[in-house]
Design a protein around this nucleic acid. Structure first.
Length: 535
DNA sequence: GCAAGGTC
């Protein structure tokens, strides 16, 4: 019988893929590696019945290092690290994974790579191929390309097996080499040079450089400098206030504000010369507040930081623990789209016994209405609760609750209301007051992280004239941009492609740990060292 | 004592 080795990027993926392909009939056995089991099943492939052996690695098998000669910091001038010999070695903790692969492949004729379908996954694929080829001479290697780990996508990919993409893998190989050489060379240079130049301040410090930590620091410094050089400017605005039936209302100027006092003053005088003002239009229109989209890593980190005041590093650690305990799905995902075949009913049902959101879950059970975003990493679903628990405490509970509430909110309905906009037009200048009536709270009932409340204003009618209670000419001063919050920093990193969903929190942690920044009242402030390095 | 990327 044709025997085929299949290798995924992590144990959970191997388990899911084997279960989907075998329709739940695969047999599990232990391997030399404690966290990477083997799943076996029969499958009809290449026009014959094959024995499929499915196992996994745990991410990269190999790591890049300088050869021994260059490992000591005093072994060479840092600039030599740009040309120094480097080696790919299997770290101790993955030697059993390597051993297991090499053991299994010997009795197989073909190898199918099932790593995540991104560049990094392609590179991990070649590490697997290399490990296997070292003990197997003429291995026939395929690449399964899937767009998600679901029955249909996995079945489709195995009917249309590709070859691994060397170019994609090589791109990662170059990225790794640059990161190592540039990172190590500059880190050694900066540390040796600066600790010597500033012994009083820096003795014992590690002054690192990296292709992600430095741009991250750069964002913090850039905002700090914008604030430092900011010069506040005066502006003026005209405000129209009215009060009727004990209800106060402010009409906001379309122009918002003007920097030319004389022009503003002239307009103000024209406005107060009118005996009364005419309501030009009263427009009522439905207004919805959107429920959250399916949750991915970046959104989770931002939400936790903003709403729960739990920082990115802590959130990541907690999410990884919840995943290990089987309570939530894979926490490192870019995907914010649920697949058509997702078992909404099953997952919602698992939450119906909860004291706080059980009833809400029951109510949406028969008509789940998920709101999807636009991103997919093609390997993982959005983050959702996989199992119910009410045994958590502290921050773990807060993060789990956030994930459950976000999931239930995402599967329910937008909040619905009606907005009333009352406009007055004076000499072609428009002022508008707006009110809000909330009719249906819907998702807000399970989502305490957002507020949306009624804003009552007095009744006005189209064409009606009135004398406002007061018209004021007010002065204000422009405000400096505020320093970055952690959520702002995450936004900037995402926008500029710094780091990945898996590493984002670590880069932020690094610039804190190395004393390049400090946190003051939840805002990121660069230290003298951080500022000096960027300058 | 270095990087960033995976991953229990």
């Amino acid at each position: 019988m044709l025997k085929i080795l299949n290798v995924a990027e992590k144990n959970n993926a191997a388990k899911s893929i084997a279960s989907l392909l075998s329709k739940g009939t695969c047999r599990k056995r232990e391997s030399a590696a404690p966290f990477n089991q083997i799943y076996e099943f029969e499958y009809n492939l290449f026009n014959q019945n094959c024995l499929m052996v499915m196992t996994s690695v745990s991410g990269h098998l190999l790591s890049l290092e300088f050869s021994n000669k260059y490992k000591r910091w005093d072994s060479c001038d840092p600039i030599e690290l740009f040309d120094a010999k480097i080696e790919r070695v299997c770290p101790k903790k993955y030697q059993k994974v390597m051993l297991s692969l090499q053991r299994e492949v010997q009795s197989c004729q073909k190898l199918i790579i099932w790593t995540d379908c991104d560049r990094e996954g392609e590179n991990i694929g070649y590490e697997i191929i290399e490990a296997c080829s070292n003990v197997h001479n003429n291995l026939d290697v395929y690449r399964a390309k899937f767009s998600e780990i679901t029955a249909s996508s996995v079945a489709k990919s195995i009917c249309d097996l590709k070859r691994p993409n060397r170019l994609a893998s090589d791109a990662v190989e170059v990225r790794k080499e640059l990161d190592l050489r540039v990172g190590a060379a500059f880190t050694r240079f900066q540390t040796l040079h600066l600790t010597k130049a500033f012994p009083d301040q820096l003795t014992g410090s590690l002054i690192s450089y990296g292709s992600c930590q430095f741009p991250t620091l750069g964002f913090v410094v850039e905002r700090y400098k914008q604030r430092e050089k900011f010069v506040s400017k005066p502006f003026w605005k005209v405000c129209v206030f009215d009060e009727k039936d004990n209800q106060k209302v402010e009409f906001l100027w379309d122009k918002e504000r003007m920097f030319d006092y004389q022009v503003c003053w002239n307009f103000f005088n024209k406005l107060i010369s009118h005996q009364s003002l005419a309501v030009q239009s009263v427009i009522r229109r439905p207004k919805n507040k959107c429920r959250p989209v399916a949750l991915n890593t970046i959104e989770l980190l931002k939400l936790a930081s903003r709403k729960l005041n739990i920082n990115a590093k802590k959130t990541m650690t907690i999410a990884e623990n919840l995943y290990s305990e089987g309570l939530i799905s894979y926490p490192r995902t870019e995907t914010n789209i649920f697949t058509e075949t997702f078992d909404f009913r099953g997952i919602i049902e698992s939450q119906t016994s909860d004291q706080n959101w059980g009833l809400f879950a029951k109510n949406i059970l028969d008509r789940p209405n998920p709101r999807n975003g636009t991103k997919s990493d093609q390997s993982h679903p959005p983050i959702y609760p996989t199992k119910y628990t009410n045994n958590l405490k502290g921050k773990e509970k807060k993060i789990y609750d956030l994930i459950v509430r976000n999931f239930l909110a995402c599967c329910s309905e937008d909040a619905k209301g009606s907005e009333t906009a009352v406009s007055i037009d004076v000499s072609h200048e428009k002022f508008t007051a707006s009110g809000l009536m909330v009719f249906e709270r819907n998702y807000l009932d399970v989502y305490p992280y957002e507020r949306w409340v009624n804003k009552k204003i007095p009744e006005f009618e189209n064409g009606q004239t009135f004398s406002p209670k007061s018209i004021q000419l007010n002065k204000g001063m422009t405000q400096a941009p505020r320093l970055l919050t952690e959520a702002d920093l995450i936004d900037l990193m995402e926008k500029h492609g710094i780091g990945t969903d898996s590493t984002l929190a670590e880069h932020i942690e690094t610039i804190k740990k190395r004393s390049y920044v400090r946190i003051e009242r939840n805002l990121f402030v660069p230290t003298v060292l951080g500022l000096g390095l960027v300058e």
